[in-house]
């Protein structure tokens, strides 16, 4: 640790010990405590990982064990059968075929919904007149459960990709729009004034102040849109389709193929895991300051 980092690390409750350098003995004491605290944290993290794995393994073993002797596998299948089906369908391309369709629906809908939601949220959130005029309508639209629009969209756009893409876009749009709208309404005006005094253009104020200040809200919308977007896609595929993961699950149900049904659910879980990982990256890139702020407040 450099001298500077060291004095920065001694910052306690907003007062930095920069006035006088600590004596060697004091430094040793602080560093020893730090080392102990690190060691404790590492042990704890390792313990959690081990217990997690044990829990998961126990759950799967129980499932495998009770399926057959206790409960008819027709209803709950069993992990080994699910894994076999999953691997087989991955290898024979069946899952990939459906995955392609679903990915287009999901990614396309997510992008369209996000862009329109962001754009309208910013525009309406920053214009008092627009917000006042549209407020009751926004509330009315918001009170419609979006998923009930699925049949209507299928009626309009057919049973192909377009209707699913539209439903995902609609679901995502509302979450992103509403969060952006409230985030933008709560932007700290003083931060805007200061940027104006510094000579920021309107576009710069939008990009560098409003968007950034509202980003914690916007991010909440983006994150919530992941599971809801997937739900919208699957529901629309259940209703009417001939391809996609929802169709894969639905047709497995008709064939009483419980293992394949679970395999489809696993694929959906994979989607969620991947998208959540992307969200984590986005969070780390743009919201690290918020985590730090929270920590600072709590210490």
């Amino acid at each position: 640790m450099s001298e500077e980092e060291y004095s920065a690390s001694l910052e306690i409750g907003g007062t930095a010990w920069t006035a006088e350098p600590a004596s060697a003995a004091d430094r040793q004491m602080v560093e020893a405590e730090q080392a102990k605290a690190r060691q404790r944290a590492r042990w704890y993290a390792a313990k959690v990982v081990v217990m997690r794995i044990l829990f998961g393994a126990a759950f799967l073993a129980l499932w495998e064990g009770i399926s057959g002797p206790w409960i008819n596998p027709f209803f709950i299948s069993k992990p080994s059968a699910i894994l076999t089906t999953l691997i087989a369908d991955l290898l024979n391309g069946r899952i990939w075929f459906h995955l392609q369709t679903s990915t287009v629906e999901l990614a396309g809908g997510y992008v369209i919904g996000t862009i329109t939601g962001l754009f309208l949220g910013l525009a309406i959130g920053r214009s008092r007149t627009l917000a006042d005029v549209l407020d009751p309508y926004i509330l009315m639209l918001y009170s419609i459960p979006r998923l009930v629009l699925a049949p209507l969209l299928i009626l309009w756009l057919g049973i192909g990709i377009a209707s699913k893409l539209a439903l995902v876009a609609l679901v995502v749009f509302f979450l992103v729009f509403f969060n952006t709208y409230s985030g933008v309404k709560n932007v700290n005006e003083e931060l805007i004034q200061i940027a104006r005094v510094m000579g920021a253009t309107r576009l710069q104020i939008f990009r560098k102040v409003i968007l950034r200040d509202a980003f914690p809200f916007i991010f909440t919308g983006l994150r919530m849109a992941v599971p809801y977007g997937i739900l919208g896609m699957v529901i629309a595929e259940f209703l009417a389709s001939n391809k996609g993961i929802g169709y894969y699950i639905f047709s497995a149900t008709y064939q009483f193929d419980t293992a394949r049904l679970f395999a489809g659910i696993m694929v959906l879980m994979g989607y969620t895991l991947i998208l959540n990982a992307l969200m984590k990256l986005l969070h780390r890139r743009f919201l690290r300051w918020k985590d730090i702020e929270r920590q600072e407040v709590s210490t």
Partner: peptide, 18 residues
């Protein structure tokens, strides 16, 4: 607003994300 002024407020109003 003119660009030749600086404005320092009671709250420091730094951009918290920078």
């Amino acid at each position: 607003v003119h660009r030749e002024i600086g404005f320092i407020t009671q709250d420091s109003n730094l951009y918290p994300w920078l």
